[in-house]
Design a protein around this nucleic acid. Structure first.
Lengths: 345, 345
DNA sequence: CTGAAAGCGCTTACAG
DNA sequence: CTGAAAGCGCTTACAG
């Protein structure tokens, strides 16, 4: 450990024969300091490879230059893109991102928040783990501004950035209806998740508007993963063998359903129509490519960062509730010419 | 801005009628302090919702509890998984991750490093942007321990964690050879990237060992993206129409090549055999599924974190050069029964 | 325009 | 076992 001592304002001040205060003024680009002095100090700063100790400055100024970003599932490209967007926007505002990943575990989420808070972030962006305890989050977070992304979290009056879940599912359902489908399932997701409930609502609304009352059998729960969805494919047709299409909770579920269909000899897009949600990169690549809802996660990340920084500026305004737009991307999975137009009027 | 003042050791000390030193001792779990005193202090800590100010502690102790993680492309699932692994392992050791993403821009990389260093990380894990300037990195990084991942970076004697590029490409090539292919291309990547050169070498070695001298035309450059690869598909067959297989630089290239083949009516896995590299999630999902090399990026992340923390402990040992194992995953893209066995002896 | 002094929240020898 | 004092690297009134 022959770590040499880092160079400080003191070293610079001594070398330039000025006070530390003057050096500090130069660092903070104060207009008060004489041009010559400034030049001398800046030269010395460069010469000695001075690096600013932001932690010390933050301590003294009682400020923060970091934001905590806590993500439930970084291996999901949707959230990885979101994280990239957050980091990009925070960086542009001079903040640094403290990353925490929870792998969908509420316990790890508490631990991660705990640890990140000790570093005094100006705020927190949280994409909550499934089954998060909002009260517990509130307790550990205290008065640090918090923005919740994607899934609603009860227990506090925090800012919330959501997706147009309802409208998205409605668009997908209307699209299938316009192709002549009537017996359409809503497949995947858990009823206790806010995003799933909203997407179901959009589906139900669209069906109702078309004069169709969705059968209770047409709502099929399953974990939002590819494997689970592939597994549940059989259950779908046990519920109703006459189904011709499904609005899926998200792309992973839709892709899993495709695999499940292929395994039973049913051709997705030809014998059975499918829509997803998210437009992850795989969606365009599957066979057939997946009709889905595009949400631009990177842009959501930028948006989240901006909203949070606004809140940091004005902590006392009423919390905001934003819903980000989604757009329907029609591809092959929702059917070509061959999809059976079942029993329509 | 009615931010109330956070509670400090002072508040606790006053409330318990002990000195700040004693409170500090309790916080750091020193065995020196009386059990009763400890209990009283701990109760008060809880009662006042004390949160430790790690930045202040780090300042005084001249330590750090963060590590910077700089990633060239977070939207690539390979690197996102890597980041998740790094964060997981750092968290387990009590470190927090300072995230920076560069989007493959060397300029942004310099800016990001600059900014992160002001937060005094104990070390840096860097997955370099393409065409990074090692000297410039060295300059800004100074004496902070740095571990380079994935792509070699000249200009400093830092630790390096790489993949078994050469062996991986060799395995893929041997696999194709064992299926009877002789006219095998190496497709994609840029010759100025260390990982591409190594993979090419493995390909050439395997071919040579089988008594085949790869034609210069069989080495086709292209950017490591899906779109670029799909575009270059024509060029591949212009070089040599008799090719029956290609070892691709990575999965993205392989998937792009598949699209390109399909567009010209050539069936991947049936008329033409393909291998990838990385085993990204899409690989198992494509049609046909992609034969590729699995590298377990999350585990690489954990490994990188551990290596770096070791280096933080002992900065003066010789830099290490680790190569992480890869394993061949055989799937449909390298050919079923129908792949033509061209002109073999 | 510049300097001396105090202080951000913590820890660490050093006495006792 | 506990306290008083000094100090980590910075900034901010306050004088001058």
């Amino acid at each position: 450990m022959t770590r040499q001592k880092p160079v400080t304002v003191n070293d610079i001040a001594r070398a330039c024969d000025v006070s530390r205060a003057t050096v500090s003024l130069v660092l903070r680009r104060s207009p008060l300091v004489n041009v010559d002095t400034r030049a001398r100090v800046e030269a010395e700063l460069k010469r000695q490879h001075y690096v600013y100790n932001r932690a010390a400055a933050n301590l003294r100024r009682r400020t923060s230059s970091s934001v905590a970003l806590v993500i439930n599932d970084l291996s999901n490209p949707f959230f990885a893109e979101f994280a990239a967007g957050v980091d990009e926007a925070l960086g542009a505002e001079g903040y640094v991102t403290l990353l925490g990943s929870t792998n969908e575990s509420p316990e790890r989420q508490q631990a991660v928040l705990d640890s990140l808070l000790e570093h005094g972030p100006a705020g927190i962006i949280l994409s909550p783990a499934e089954h998060s305890d909002g009260e517990a989050v509130r307790r550990v977070v205290g008065i640090t501004p918090l923005l919740v992304f994607n899934r609603a979290l009860a227990g506090g009056d925090w800012d919330f950035l959501a997706l147009e879940n309802e409208r998205g599912a409605r668009l997908a359902t209307e699209h299938l209806l316009s192709l002549g489908h009537r017996r359409i399932a809503f497949f995947g997701g858990h009823g206790d998740s806010s995003s799933c409930r909203q997407r179901r609502q959009g589906y139900i609304d669209a069906m109702s508007a078309a004069g169709i009352r969705p059968d209770a059998n047409w709502l099929v729960e399953c974990a939002p993963t590819r494997v689970a969805a592939a597994h549940e494919t059989g259950a779908l047709f046990e519920r109703d063998p006459l189904l011709t299409a499904a609005v899926c909770y998200n792309d992973n579920v839709a892709l899993g359903l495709m695999l499940g269909l292929q395994a039973r000899g049913t051709r997705p897009g030809t014998d059975f129509a499918i829509t997803g949600f998210d437009d992850i990169p795989e969606a365009a690549l599957s066979t057939p490519p997946l009709t889905t809802l595009s949400v631009d996660p990177r842009e959501r990340g930028r948006q989240a960062a901006q909203l949070l920084l606004q809140r940091v500026q004005s902590p006392d305004e009423a919390p905001c509730n934003l819903v980000a737009p989604v757009t329907l991307v029609v591809r092959g999975s929702s059917g070509g010419a061959h999809v059976p137009k079942a029993d329509h009027a």
